[in-house]
Amino acid sequence: MTTAAHSPWILGLTGGIGSGKSAAADRFVALGVHLVDADQAARWVVEPGRPALASIVERFGPGVLLADGQLDRAALRQVIFADPEQRRWLEALLHPLIGQEIFSNLATAQSPYAVYVSPLLIESGQYTKTQRILVIDAPHALQMQRTLQRDGTDVAQVEAILKAQLSREERLRHADDVVVNDRDLASLHEQIDRLHHLYLTFKGGRP
């Protein structure tokens, strides 16, 4: 007997830097929706005791570990940024594992649908594994302002990040739903709540 009928459908949640993705994600969690964050999953797969960490140490040596056995991300970053080949090796090791981690975790959701949050949802191609895409959108100037306030970086750095990310138009082209986050948190919550009630009536991500 198959339980596939009971597995939740998956909503992909994405948005550019400073759009309010995290605030939107927090709201879904507050509403009781099972949520997995791509950054979280990337941390899970390299926890001590996991095969990925052993492979990394085998390749790069114990210098990439902290005293407590955790991965020293800064040390690893230095190694791989100096050498594109090493970076490709690491990505080839981690990306499939992170994908597995994400989707096996999402499948355990008790809520009717589950949310997968990733800034690179569309670029990574992982949007193809979701049934619906929600884009959190914000005007360029507001993205800049929020990011500068939050990270204390300079304008040139934020501009560089925005340039490296998918263009707003391209992201919106993939969207099934768009939340424009250009007002306050209450307004964002109201829009997410409205979508949540709508999503609860959907089967497989469709009305």
Rank of each mutant, 00 (worst) to 15 (best):
L195W: 02
L121G: 02
S118A: 15
F103V: 04
R173E: 08
V179M: 04
A186L: 07
A109D: 10
P96D: 01
N181S: 07
E91I: 08
L134I: 05
T201R: 04
D184L: 09
R194Y: 12
F81Q: 10
M144Y: 08
E101P: 02
A25P: 05
P207C: 09
P48G: 12
D39E: 06
P96I: 11
H196D: 15
D72T: 02
D176H: 14
K21V: 09
I192D: 00
E47Y: 11
R168N: 09
G18C: 03
R77K: 14
R183M: 08
G16C: 07
P84E: 10
V46E: 00
L121Y: 00
G61P: 05
T201H: 11
P84M: 03
D176S: 13
G99V: 01
V79H: 13
K203H: 15
S187K: 04
V29F: 01
R87M: 14
F202M: 06
S104A: 14
A41Q: 02
L148W: 15
R146V: 11
H140P: 08
Q126V: 09
L94G: 13
T14S: 15
L71T: 02
L172A: 01
P48Q: 09
V46F: 10
Q100A: 12
G99H: 14
V155C: 05
G99K: 07
A141S: 07
P119W: 13
E85M: 06
G61I: 04
P8D: 12
V158D: 00
L93K: 05
L162V: 10
A54Y: 01
E170I: 11
G205R: 02
E85Y: 06
Q100N: 13
A114T: 08
T147C: 09
A160W: 01
P8A: 11
S167M: 07
L31H: 07
H95V: 11
G15Y: 05
T130P: 00
G32F: 13
R168C: 11
R87V: 15
R171M: 08
W44Q: 14
A41F: 00
W89L: 03
L148R: 08
V178C: 08
A164I: 02
V29K: 05
R88E: 15
L148Y: 04
M1H: 01
P62S: 11
V46R: 02
R43Y: 10
L106H: 09
I10F: 12
P8I: 03
R173A: 13
H140Q: 15
T2F: 13
P51Y: 10
R146C: 04
K163F: 15
L188T: 03
I161D: 03
G61R: 06
D151H: 06
Q86W: 01
R87G: 13
Q165M: 06
L120N: 00
K129F: 15
A138K: 05
F28Q: 03
A156C: 05
T201L: 05
A24S: 14
S124R: 10
L11P: 11
G63H: 04
A175N: 04
Q149G: 11
D151T: 03
A5H: 12
V36P: 04
H34K: 06
A25I: 04
S22K: 02
A141K: 03
Q86T: 15
L53P: 00
I136C: 07
G16H: 01
A67Y: 08
A164W: 01
I10D: 00
